[in-house]
Design a protein around this nucleic acid. Sequence first.
DNA 1: TTTTAGCACTCCGTTTCTTCGAGTGCTAAT
DNA 2: ATTAGCACTCGAAGAAACGGAGTGCTAAAA
Lengths: 343, 343
Amino acid sequence: MELDQRKLQILRAIVDEYILSASPVGSKALSQSGMKWSSATIRNEMADLETLGYLAQPHTSAGRIPSEKAYRLYVDQMMQRAHLSDEESKLLYGYFREHVHGVDAVLRETAKALSEITHYTALVMMPDIGVNRLRHLQLIPLTTGKALAVVVTDAGVSQNTVIDVPEDIGPEELDRISKAITARFHDCRMSTVSSKLVREFGGELSARADFVESLLARLCESQSRDRRMVELSGATNMLEYPEYSDVSKARTFLATVEQKDDMYRMLKKASSMEFTVTIGSENEQEGFQDCSVVTASYRVNGTPVGSFGVIGPTRMDYARVLSILKNVQTNLGTVLQSFLKEE
Amino acid sequence: MELDQRKLQILRAIVDEYILSASPVGSKALSQSGMKWSSATIRNEMADLETLGYLAQPHTSAGRIPSEKAYRLYVDQMMQRAHLSDEESKLLYGYFREHVHGVDAVLRETAKALSEITHYTALVMMPDIGVNRLRHLQLIPLTTGKALAVVVTDAGVSQNTVIDVPEDIGPEELDRISKAITARFHDCRMSTVSSKLVREFGGELSARADFVESLLARLCESQSRDRRMVELSGATNMLEYPEYSDVSKARTFLATVEQKDDMYRMLKKASSMEFTVTIGSENEQEGFQDCSVVTASYRVNGTPVGSFGVIGPTRMDYARVLSILKNVQTNLGTVLQSFLKEE
DNA sequence: TTTTAGCACTCCGTTTCTTCGAGTGCTAAT
DNA sequence: ATTAGCACTCGAAGAAACGGAGTGCTAAAA
């Protein structure tokens, strides 16, 4: 089952070539472009690689294309990290210098940067507010019976939610409750700010325990409801590739990528890993069976709070994409940190 | 230049048929389906209609397709408003019953409803905050030097902006300034809350005049910057139609529709009109030369604050779309009003 | 004068057939 | 173990043939 040096070399050449051209690679073409063996030898090796499951033939008299197994091997062992040109890193850096109006804006900009530079489709998950610490909560009266709850965390992320308020709580009391909650739960993780803690606490809060309880429940719930938790960019980039010259394929892809719930779940799952590469049928999503997803996580104060990634055809340029993700990860870390000068 | 009754009737039949089938309509097919004239007569009339510019022929031996001029006539004079089935109005009504967590959510839901029911692409403009009246402004400290400004208007719309704060203003003072501004400018139109008014006002505000001024400037500026002002839904619906079976056409369409700035401008312009129908080349956008855009405005307290619309191929079912928009306009009006019980 | 039947003609979309060439597997020579 | 040579395969692309829906025009019918 071990592949000897020559097989590896040939396989790598095939993958590299196929990533570039998207058309089956033949033995002759290979031997002419810098391979030191004759086409016949390569042909024999290709036959072997096919029986081993690394290559496939669209039809009898065509060249070979890499299988998912080949891509997996390529990603895990064979590829050498691409080197971004100075120009590219500068370009990338530029995206992060421009818009610094809050975490959300930066992440949106990140998605745009990723999709524009890779020419694939980019997804960025908004940070998971649960792991962050509460810095400020403010209730703003809207109408009788309704108020806007604004939560700000130490990561500089904010979240708005409309909540119901008992009629007998006036603006002044809302303000006092805001201050009380802020004081009590300052620097607690959002996920631990549960209703249990409320009862322990005396004063104004316990008098309004029911309200505060429902308020906190509402805050947690609203996070998962909010469909804006994923920023998508460059979905139409995929239409450039011959894989999607068929409109119906393009349609299924676009439909899948717009299922923000699924995308969020996917990224969330990936956020515990520094990097992930998911190839073709390894993907859970129906619509990504012919795609690969590459993700990277980002952290704030050392805690991973989210992830971002790129989706492309299985023959995507993994080396390049990974380099770009790594670069973005660094940039993003720096920028997000800059929102936290106080720490 | 006047079209007699028969010409009108024939033209209408052609438009109706072409909207359904998307393929050129021939004289024979027409005369067989309920027309009381022979194919020859119809043929002559069609030739006339062509010289008058209402019809076009893709090639010599094909049927006729309506020109933009024909659609214009159709929309302005000939079409009869479609009647939504009870089922459909109920379905539509359902969208508005479900999500009532704030104005933004409702409008997002509106976009989804529109695209799903029409099978075209829907756009909804978030309400223009400028014409609304300030109800509450709250500054929330983020880090030293930065704060989050949350603006709430009488329409229940909120807007978050990260602003810079001089280092010597502490959390308590931010709170006091918030209250002072809220008190001073309560019920003023956002667009009139300009820096000029600030100077007139004494007390805490004038002491921090520079800060308040820059704050207000920042708020105005940020509205136009914010790219989330347009909610898009069902962009991929267009790929269902034969007009977009060509991937490159699909690409240009999708690219255009994702230019949120342009879309916002388009809707903004349309928001002063109850309804608009823009056919083919009447559109300013490059990518909409083969599309039609139908919009309706929505109002809060009688003031038009935004608009929403549907984009489809020029042969879209105008009658149906207009009925749906009218229905949605009513529903939306009711729901938005319900956020304003106080008035 | 208006409408309609009839007819020759056009031209697109489809299908069928042919050709071309890149690629293969196998065998025999190196 | 490697490679040159050869017969074979099969899809992609082009060419030719066909069918049919539709037209414009003319002449007869209303």
